[in-house]
């Protein structure tokens, strides 16, 4: 009672306080995140951006010279940079599409009602295996497997699928596909887990209703499963696209960017740590940032649409 009256008398002030509180609370909750990101990412990004506008940065005795957009012009018109862009697009798009197909197929399989819970649990662990290894080990493992005298050639030769030993990573036509394959192998489990989650979220009655209408398995998949998974598919694909563009270790440690496998990340690395042209590397980095930010904007848009 006493508390009640006190509350009533203080109402306007308290209301004001509540109002400002409500205004500032969301920022307060976000503050640790924002502080961390501001210091540890915004500062370096701005630094890299500034580098990209200067020449003679870091690895140079001469003082930096402001050159405006010259570095960008140089990068964007470079033959090798363009090649890297088209390789990156192939690498990223193929990875995203196949990740999606494999991830979804495995998820459907592991969601099958024909399997017992223990079987599913066991195979779930097998299926996520590629996920638990660090990228450099995946590169080393696949170099062993894809060695001309490695086990893959041996098996394919014995089975008679190939007429002679193939040079998976050193053949100019094969290499980009081999690297993409390795990336596909190492990356699909993330889709798998997300799709498994998504499938469990689809209400059973949707399928029941579909079956009552006489839909077959394919129609159920096409008209219920896929549309229900759509938000997941979009967000996964966009995030994966960004992550694949950043993929450096796998490409670098398998082919070194040679044999038509130069991608933007290896191009940038070489500019920075092999040619020691940090200005060019920074400009390339900014281009990658721009591409990825565009994708990120799509991502946020798609999320908002899903919310509404």
């Amino acid at each position: 009672m006493v508390a009640g009256t006190a509350g009533e008398t203080q109402e306007p002030a308290s209301f004001m306080r509540e109002h400002t509180k409500r205004k500032f609370l969301p920022y307060a909750y976000l503050s640790p995140t924002l502080l961390l990101l501001a210091v540890l990412t915004v500062v370096p990004i701005v630094t890299v951006f500034l580098y990209s506008l200067f020449d003679n940065v870091i690895v140079n005795p001469n003082p930096p010279v402001f050159v405006g957009l010259e570095n960008y012009e140089e990068v964007l018109t470079h033959r090798k940079f363009r090649a890297a862009v088209s390789n990156t697009l192939y690498f990223a798009l193929a990875s995203v599409i196949v990740h999606f197909i494999i991830g979804l197929s495995f998820a459907l399989l592991l969601n099958s009602r024909l399997l017992s819970a223990n079987v599913k649990a066991f195979f779930r662990v097998i299926y996520i295996l590629p996920w638990v290894f660090t990228a450099s080990i995946i590169a080393i493992l696949w170099r062993l497997l894809m060695n001309p005298h490695g086990v893959i050639n041996f098996v394919l030769l014995e089975v008679g699928l190939i007429p002679e030993l193939l040079e998976w990573l050193s053949d100019r036509k094969l290499a980009i596909h081999s690297v993409t394959f390795i990336n596909i192998w190492s990356g699909y489990p993330f889709y798998l887990v997300s799709f498994l989650a998504g499938l469990q979220g689809i209400p059973d009655d949707l399928y029941e209703a579909g079956r009552v209408d006489g839909a077959n398995a394919w129609q159920l998949f096409w008209h219920i499963t896929l549309p229900q998974l759509r938000p997941i598919i979009i967000s996964l694909a966009l995030l994966d696209f960004i992550w694949t563009i950043h993929q450096f270790t796998l490409v670098w440690m398998t082919t070194g960017g040679g044999r038509n496998t130069e991608v933007l990340s290896t191009y940038t690395y070489k500019a920075a740590f092999s040619s020691y042209d940090y200005s060019e590397a920074s400009a390339t980095a900014m281009v990658i940032l721009a591409i990825c930010t565009l994708v990120a904007i799509f991502y946020v848009r798609s999320q908002r649409m899903a919310d509404e």
Partner: peptide, 8 residues
């Protein structure tokens, strides 16, 4: 020359 030279 042993195969795989270009990535060896």
């Amino acid at each position: 020359v042993a195969p795989g030279a270009f990535a060896m």
